[in-house]
Design a protein around this nucleic acid. Structure first.
Lengths: 343, 343
DNA sequence: TTGTACGCGTTATCAG
DNA sequence: CTGATAACGCGTACAA
């Protein structure tokens, strides 16, 4: 009694309906059925009708596996993103998928988490499906992953970051510049002290570091830092603000958070402690998620247009697939500081 | 100069590395390479080493398309969910994917939106990839979709709802019962008036309806209702509460929201208007998302264990794939009312 | 332990 | 406009 027994599906059950079967019913050969589907204009109206009838009758569903094998085109695009439950990646992938679906592509999606090692294994399994292109998040990949990617000979796009030396192409923005600009903004707002709250995310850490450097340079003071050690959440934001207050002597100034969600947590914690925002402390988020403008006080933040990022990335990939776009292309979608009331 | 030109990928470029090529390098036949990969114990240690060397040297990546075609097993599982940007579906799919990946499956994911028609087209494209199983959200599907699904002869699981007549199997909970129980809970808390805020979501509407019926029966009063007409968001929650206050004369009592996000919006709006919660009005959410316990006041809600739902669904599918699980199975994962401070 | 022969369902090529 | 025929790369008998 092996574990593979008793399987009533496939294996030996009713064989699937093939183009040949449809053809028999329509009185044509298998090839003609194939043509009727991919180049209907190359088939007489007569037989086209009979074939479509036969398809309806048999409930034929083409086998894309066989099609991909024969044509060397899978119409599949792989996407590796850190996390689906992080809304910023979810909105990005929604926009990305939408645009690609319009062009007949399906997305094979996997979460890599924030550990670089996990990505490598996923790259292999994804490549085995022979996607027509692959999307990676970030610009840091293991040597073996890079090697496999290059070997695949397909368009590759890295997103959410930019670099001078992309594997193939990349579209994103400059995190160092974003952190720096946030520091300048908060300093210009009159804050002489600042602290940071950062989630466990390589890019967030890079922004934090740029922020701290810049703000310390401008203010000649120390920037206290609290790291969540995990993904962003309201709880993490609350705890981090408590940490800054209780363990780092934070009493005034600005707090730069690595995401709007952390900022919202900090906002709630400040409220719970009776600290007025922005009068007592200022809070700045990152991302400009939908709710940023709808919380009280509304959140000052760094806007990243994730939907545009998704669309631009999809278009770049499409252009690359049909040879329009050159390799080594780098697209900076930029960011924008949005001043609201929390800072 | 057609649009398909200039394509430097695939098409005619370097042919991919095959098992045959690996075999030649290792001095064995293609079959032996295949065996070395799927049944290493059936190959001598000697040749296994040579094969693994050859694989490394050539950078061989198996072609899962060809494998699936030959074995009639794609190791692919399709998942159709309404929305990725809705955190409840995202957490569900993360749990679902995780469990299935442990068993060697990859997930082909698509968003269907909340319009039933969109699902049908997606079912077709997904089925063409010959997934080993398919997951659908909800229990309402077009006739043609049902037909195609049945014809595919693969395990099918419908989630987030239950019914006596699943296409194949379903795992979820009873939305009518959930709405009813929420009404009883709020009434027992002493609320003599109630209103609802509901997003555009068939299941949410069903809960709302059950809630209103039950609460009206218990209180002998009318339950005012505000519908967002779109997806849930903090903005939508704020607007809906304003609507209830300004257009429906809401001044006290409880508000049952179709999601925690809407409830959070209502909470913020109440705060902005200086209405104390729960003293002025009570607010109840739905879903028990992470932040529900971390906002101020903490959110009373109906807990749905989405991670468990994901795992249970994956396990049911796995069991069904290897014939352990019978068809027409219905799994009710239930729900739980969590009393916190907002109601 | 290894290899040969064949089939999976489709597309591409070339003839008619 | 239609049809043979040959790939596509791998798994599954079955044989050695």
């Amino acid at each position: 009694m092996g574990v593979m027994e008793n399987n009533e599906f496939k294996k030996d059950g009713k064989r699937q309906v093939t183009m040949a079967a449809v053809g028999r019913l329509a009185g044509v050969s298998q090839v003609t059925v194939s043509r009727a589907l991919s180049h209907p204009d190359k088939v007489s109206a007569q037989t086209l009708l009979r074939i479509n009838d036969a398809i309806k009758v048999t409930g034929f569903v083409p086998n894309a596996l066989a099609g991909a094998l024969a044509s060397k085109k899978s119409n599949l695009i792989s996407a590796l993103i850190p996390s689906l439950t992080n809304i910023v990646y979810a909105t990005f992938i929604t926009a990305f998928s939408e645009k690609l679906r319009e062009h007949g592509y399906q997305i094979l999606l996997s979460e890599t988490g924030f550990e670089p090692e996990a990505e490598e294994a996923l790259v292999a399994t994804h490549l085995s499906r022979r996607p027509d292109a692959i999307l990676l998040t970030g610009i840091h990949h293991s040597a073996r992953a890079r090697q496999m990617l290059l070997g695949a000979g397909i368009p590759i796009v890295e997103v959410w970051d930019i670099t001078d030396s992309p594997v193939d192409m990349c579209v994103g923005f400059d995190h160092v510049e974003a952190g720096r600009r946030a520091a300048e903004f908060l300093f210009e707002q009159g804050n002489t002290r600042a602290a940071t709250i950062t989630a466990k995310d390589e890019r967030a850490v890079r922004r934090q570091s740029a922020f701290a450097n810049r703000f310390e340079y401008l203010s000649k003071g120390h920037v206290a830092e609290s790291n969540t050690g995990g993904p962003a959440s309201i709880r993490a934001g609350r705890d981090a603000l408590s940490d800054l207050i209780e363990n780092h002597g934070l009493t005034s100034g600005a707090v730069f958070c690595s995401s709007d969600l952390l900022a919202q947590g900090a906002l709630i914690e400040a409220q719970a402690r009776g600290i007025p925002v922005p009068q007592g402390i200022s809070i700045m988020g990152f991302g400009d998620q939908d709710f940023a403008r709808d919380v009280e006080p509304s959140l000052t933040t760094v806007a990243i247009d994730r939907t545009r990022l998704g669309h631009v990335t999809a278009e770049a990939l499409l252009a690359r697939i049909n040879g329009t776009q050159r390799p080594k292309s780098v697209t900076d979608i930029g960011f924008e500081i949005v001043r609201r009331t929390s800072a």
